[in-house]
Design a protein around this nucleic acid. Structure first.
Length: 791
DNA sequence: GTACCGGTCCTTTTT
DNA sequence: GGACCGGTAC
């Protein structure tokens, strides 16, 4: 293959830079420096949380370039997320100055594999313009196959099959290689569907995410010449988050690194939290065996957290077996101990955290004022977020949820994209099927079946099948007319796409003429305005691309397009989403056995599962820079049912000397004692438990540190009391004076008009935020909003 | 073809 | 509690 192009030589300015002693090395500590300078042979960089791993990694790349060991396009640098890739690119560019041209092979596993696979698609029976299916397409396809094969879709739901197939792909198992035991476990139905699914993908000229890696591994294994080419080309390989690699990624890397063995893997076995989606901690634990003579560097100096936070984290993670082992240390000042507090229930926990957040803005307990932007709430499961959202909405505390459904996963975006896909390539059956009856065109299940039959009978795509169907007269009046109009529309749009007409205009035209925009404009549900907003965003996003094709290609892999409003906000996210981030103040709520560690995790994966949960706890604690607050609730409503729980076993593992117990005795009407006390009653083995016990037992425990803290905080909060008092006044006014039709102002939703009153709740049609129900006391008459409520 | 009702199942998530 | 799916009634 001549597809690899020779690179231009280093530019003059690069050569000049290379000749100088490397100034970037000065900013590194000895371990980082070692990791950067050990360029040849296998290197494992064990980088604990907050030890400057990205710095070491990017400096290493800079060093490769500066010492002219490799040109930018001879370095393969892989990450897991686009975000990480982007950050690395930025930082390398910054280190190198403007002299460096882009690094084409710095990217996610998937993005790099797409690039490679487009070059060699024919080796696995694909055309190089294959499409990439997302999870949704994948499910639809599987559903079709299950239906076609006459398999009971109750016993074999598409979701489950998708999961099974994904896991096989994660392990680099093509249908032929699935071990008999595995196949048997799923009654051989799983493999059968898998085989059909792969065949179907091939005829569709499509791949799913897992295929990107799987196909490349297959190609490398079956075509020595291709592999050899890349082994030579990629002179240095760097891998980020190595503890998260799955078997397929591991094989891919090992194949590429086999020749020169210049591979540097960075990771932290203690932060491996993606086992459930195929990551193999074993990969990192085995590194020295896989690459004999590997140089292992430990980055242990932490630049993020206080000693108390590191101590608490170390205490928890120490309970895991078979770790590679690291001891984080820091030069930071001692700081606050990790705080631990129990609550009666989840609501109270949310209320307490809300109060804390408000108080911290003014500086509490001798701590500097901490803004909302510097705070994060990290939960185990996303349903925990609701309690916080409810509470924060009530008190008007700005928050942002990180994670959630991503922009491109939203229904309206996916629909719009499907329209674009068909406009660009009319043979994209899955996309066509998605939108043929959106908006409703009277083309339901039956009409679709006719199209599919026509397509199959003539061996053409669904789009062509539809055309044949229209011509055949087999479709009745209304449906026929609608379908004909749709096909005609696509004919026009396809022409526009081919002619490279202004793609932004074309996109607007498609959404307009197809009736898609109208559909949402006529939609009365509260989400509709937001969806139209998103569609506008989508069209705006087109601006940075040359044409629709380019955009679609990009979006299939990337697009984390969070439009961010102004103002400081507390972040709420899952522990998983928090990996790699850091915040001055971190709240870790819901530390109850069953919730965290998750019961399901323990049931399904036993000790392995528990250890992964423990790593999650470790990740959580180590996100905190200055203040870390762990909390648990004795009672929680789960699936509408009240359940009581014991404090998490991880709480037992927190070393007493790094923890301050805030829970005061008797504050919760004995509730806490009743809930948590049950678990504490016995021979309270750990220090924390005995401290808790002591607090609970001491009836007059007003000299306990926790109680003093609480009082001190209450005093500080007292200073912000006027705000609340003021709200109360508004409250009194509100209840008496609100009337339907009145213009009001809400701190979060802005201006609106009251459309209904139900007790103390108002239904308000907000100008920007749509119709919402809001507690009356958090709304002021529009006229008095000028002296805004200080929160 | 669509609208509604009742049963079921609930982590974590990137590409 | 609620999202989602499938079945049935219009």
């Amino acid at each position: 293959m001549s597809s690899i192009q020779p690179d231009r030589p280093l530019s003059l300015s690069q050569q000049a830079v290379a000749a100088r002693p490397a100034p970037y090395l000065d900013g590194l500590n000895p371990a980082q420096r070692e990791a950067v300078e050990q360029l040849e042979g296998p290197v494992l960089m064990l980088a604990g949380a907050g030890t400057g791993k990205t710095k070491a990694l990017t400096t290493r790349i800079a060093h490769l370039l500066w010492t002219q060991r490799a040109r930018p396009n001879e370095i393969l640098a892989v990450t897991f997320t686009n975000k990480a890739a982007r950050e690395m690119k930025d930082r390398v560019a910054r280190l190198m100055g403007e002299a460096v041209e882009g690094m084409p092979w710095l990217g996610t596993f998937h993005a790099i594999c797409v690039k490679l696979l487009r070059r060699h698609a024919e080796l696995v029976g694909l055309k190089s313009n294959f499409t990439i299916l997302d999870t949704d397409d994948q499910l639809r396809l599987l559903k079709q196959l299950v239906a076609a094969a006459n398999i009971d879709d109750k016993r074999w739901p598409a979701r489950m099959l998708a999961g099974i197939i994904d896991q096989w792909k994660n392990r680099a198992l093509t249908p032929d290689k699935v071990p008999a035991a595995d196949a048997g476990a799923y009654d051989h139905k799983g493999v059968a569907i898998y085989r059909e699914y792969q065949a179907r993908l091939k005829t569709l000229n499509a791949v799913d995410f897992g295929d990107l890696l799987l196909h490349m591994v297959t190609i490398f294994q079956q075509h020595e010449d291709v592999l050899a080419q890349y082994q030579r080309w990629f002179r240095y390989i760097l891998v980020d988050e190595y503890q998260d690699t799955n078997v397929a990624q591991y094989l891919w890397l090992r194949l590429l690194a086999q020749g020169h063995r210049n591979i540097c893997c960075v990771g932290d076995d203690d932060q491996s939290i993606y086992g459930w989606r195929g990551a193999e901690v074993g990969n990192i634990l085995r590194f020295e065996k896989d690459f004999p003579g590997a140089h292992v560097v430990r980055l242990e100096q932490n630049y993020r957290s206080t000693p108390h936070i590191l101590g608490a984290a170390a205490g928890v993670i120490a309970a895991n077996k078979g770790r590679l082992g690291k001891t984080l240390w820091t030069e930071a000042e001692e700081g606050e101990k990790v705080r631990l507090i129990g609550h009666w229930d989840g609501e109270e926990e949310a209320r307490w955290i809300g109060d804390e957040l408000e108080a911290m803005g003014g500086g509490t307990r001798g701590m500097r004022p901490v803004g909302l932007n510097e705070c994060a709430i990290l939960v185990r499961a996303s349903h925990q977020m609701r309690a916080f959202e409810d509470r924060f909405l009530t008190i008007g505390l700005p928050y942002r949820v990180i994670g959630g459904p991503r922009f491109y996963e939203r229904m309206e975006i996916r629909d719009a994209m499907a329209y674009f896909r068909v406009a660009v390539s009319p043979d994209d059956d899955l996309a066509f099927e998605r939108i043929v009856n959106v908006p409703k065109r009277g083309l339901g299940e039956k009409a679709l079946q006719k199209m599919q039959r026509a397509a199959r009978a003539n061996g053409v795509s669904l789009f062509e099948g539809a055309r044949i169907l229209v011509a055949s007269g087999e479709l009745t009046g209304k449906a026929k007319g609608q379908l004909a109009a749709l096909l005609e529309g696509f004919g026009r749009w396809h022409g526009g796409a081919l002619a490279e007409a202004d793609h932004i205009e074309l996109a607007e035209q498609i959404l307009e003429e197809s009736g898609y925009t109208d559909m949402w404009q006529n939609d009365k549900t509260p989400e509709a305005p937001g969806r139209l907003e998103n569609l506008k965003e989508l069209v705006k996003a087109l601006e940075s691309f040359e044409n629709l094709q380019g955009f679609l290609e990009h979006v299939a892999l990337i697009m984390d397009n969070e439009s961010e409003e102004e103002g400081p906000k507390v972040s709420i996210m899952t522990l998983h989403a928090a990996k790699g981030l850091e915040f001055p103040a971190v709240f870790l709520p819901g530390w109850e056995d069953g919730l965290f560690p998750s019961q399901r995790s323990m049931d399904e994966s036993g000790v392995k599962g528990l250890e992964e949960e423990r790593r999650l706890a470790y990740v959580g604690i180590t996100r905190a820079e200055e203040l870390c607050t762990i909390s648990f609730a004795g009672n929680r409503r789960i699936y509408g049912q009240w359940q009581s729980a014991l404090p998490s076993r991880f709480i037992d593992e927190l070393p007493g000397e790094h923890v301050e117990v805030l829970t005061p005795p008797g504050l919760y009407g004995g509730g806490y004692g009743a809930a948590a006390g049950a678990g504490l009653g016995g021979a309270g083995g750990s220090e924390i438990r005995s401290t808790l016990h002591e607090d609970a037992a001491r009836a007059d425990g007003y000299n306990s540190p926790g109680w003093k803290r609480l009082q001190a905080r209450a005093q500080v909060r007292g200073m912000s009391q006027p705000k609340e008092a003021r709200n109360m006044v508004i409250d009194a006014e509100a209840v008496s004076s609100h009337a339907v039709g009145e213009r009001v102002f809400h701190q979060k939703f802005g201006y609106g008009a009251i459309t209904g009153i139900e007790g103390d709740k108002l239904e308000i049609a907000f100008d920007k935020a749509g119709v919402k129900k809001v507690v009356a006391k958090f709304v002021v008459p529009a006229a008095s909003a000028a002296d805004d409520i200080p929160f």
